[in-house]
């Protein structure tokens, strides 16, 4: 079988067995994308092992604590796993469906992007996203330093749409771009590159030889809130527990 696939289908597997909840990917994301104070495109949630359905822990009972790093459950039955959450780059993305002007769109390679020159700021996508990953520029960006950090330039898709700019204009929605400016030149998203434990595996899901495709297909991988049918391109390898099959 000659796998001569020309179109990429970018995806990511996050191995929860490896994640140590250090927030390096979240901070790295803020840095490369020059995210203003209070903006987090990427967050590391404290969950229970296997809790990617949204039904097995905090949405059943109130969270164990509103603080991070606190296990779920009652002693001695304690459970904890880290669940890094950024844009899930859904195949059937609710945000793409609701955007009235097509400012949020899905590229052929599956990356869901926001065109900052098109967005009218109606925030319907924020209402539509089940994962709560979108942030809105309510006012002018509040930055910790007075110079631009990170990638630092505008980036446009081949058809000229502004999908990254270091200082996002007021009144637009922003979110994880899967580091489109990096993956287009063969680099890895920054969160993948900075992860100290290799918990993030990025690659082309269309290439059956790739590690990401094999991990995503191996049967153990889950998606976040799979019952909503959004079919995310981000997969999670749940924490393997002793005694579990």
């Amino acid at each position: 079988m000659a796998a001569e696939t020309t179109t990429k289908r970018w995806g990511m597997v996050i191995d929860q067995n490896r994640c140590i909840g250090c927030w390096t990917c979240a901070v790295g994301c803020k840095e490369i994308n020059n995210e203003p104070l209070g903006f987090w495109w990427n967050r590391i949630l404290t969950a229970a092992p296997g809790d990617t359905t949204g039904e097995s822990s905090a949405t059943v009972a109130d969270p164990a604590s509103e603080s991070i790093d606190v296990p779920h459950g009652t002693f001695p039955e304690l459970d904890m796993a880290y669940l890094p959450v950024a844009c899930q780059h859904c195949e059937d993305a609710p945000c793409v469906k609701v955007c009235p002007v097509g400012a949020t769109f899905r590229r052929d390679d599956g990356t869901v992007l926001v065109d900052y020159e098109r967005c009218i700021g109606c925030r319907y996508c924020i209402a539509a996203c089940p994962y709560g990953i979108r942030v809105f520029n309510w006012g002018d960006a509040d930055q910790p330093v007075d110079f631009t950090i990170g990638y630092g330039k505008d980036y446009r898709t081949t058809d000229g749409r502004l999908v990254f700019t270091p200082d996002r204009p007021r009144g637009v929605v922003e979110k994880c771009t899967l580091c489109v400016e990096r993956i287009d030149t063969g680099e890895q998203p920054f969160c993948v590159e900075v992860c100290p434990v290799g918990a993030r595996i990025f690659g082309d899901l269309n290439d059956p030889e790739s590690e990401v495709a094999q991990l995503a297909d191996d049967g153990g991988a889950t998606q976040l809130l799979p019952d909503l049918g959004t079919n995310p391109r981000i997969f999670y390898l749940p924490v393997e527990q002793e005694g579990s099959v």
């Binding site: 209070g38 949204g54 969270p63 509103e66 709560g132």
Partner: peptide, 15 residues
């Protein structure tokens, strides 16, 4: 109440 009620919650975009 966002769907994912897991710590630390949703980013508010303000600091």
């Amino acid at each position: 109440k966002p769907l994912l009620q897991l710590p630390p919650g949703n980013a508010t975009g303000s600091y």
